[in-house]
Amino acid sequence: MNDKVISKKNGVQNNNSKIIIKKFTRPATIISLGLLFIIIFCAVIAPFLAPTNPYDLKVVSILDSRLSPGDSMFNGNVAWLGTDGAGRDVLSAIIYGLRTSLIVAISSALIALTIGLIVGLISGFYGGKIDSFLMRVVDIQLSFPAILIALVLLALLGKGIDKVIIALAIVQWAIYARTVRAAAIVERNKEYIQAASCLGLSDFFIIWKHLLPNSISPLIVLATLQTAHSISIEATLSFLGVGVPITEPSLGSLISNGFDFILSGAYWITFFPGLMLLATVAAINIFGDQLRIILNPRVNN
């Protein structure tokens, strides 16, 4: 009888992995995941992929400035997406800019995740006054618009990729902390945590071995969506001129770079980086949403 029960349970488990595979093969998942892969791949191999190095001053020639898409440049290369005011190839600039954008977004998301995880776990595990204090800090943080805090921080810190990463991490940790805390409180009240403290295990050990693995799953989706969010915040900051330095432009600074030329008809300098930004953010967001559906056992279709 019991063996039968177990085999039934095993069956259920296999089913679960089957269902997950099934969910992964939905069109929206495949498309978003594929797009995401391409984007990340392009960013990683940017130096090999880009036709020219847009920041190598030896290659850039002012004679090529504001060529429209498809025109030939002075050195014979075709500028598929045109060139900007300084004569740089827009396609190459986008590929390099994507790289900067992704580095900033992913590293800031990771830092924010780590801070949020630690704060959330401590808050959820200990409860009481520690919890109240930490959550009030989170409340204050969340009550200001992210872009405002980032602006103030960057005004104080100055320019530079590292400064942008720090600012974005500070802007985002609170939302991770709140999510982890909610999951941790649920797990904390389960009896296996009590059993662990009954065994006399240290608090650190319990948090690390028992609480963390069981409260981390909601973060997977959140982290994906927040990465998209930080790409757009970074783009906004760069557009406003307080983000990454002009020597290492991100998608945001490329957009702001071409902004002056829109009225004179050179739309491509702004349009294509903008399109890339849209595609990246949309791909990550859709994938995050799909991930939420995949990981939620209740959504079965």
Partner: peptide, 8 residues
């Protein structure tokens, strides 16, 4: 059902 860590 809740007294054992499901991930161990």
């Amino acid at each position: 059902y809740s007294s054992l860590n499901p991930r161990m």
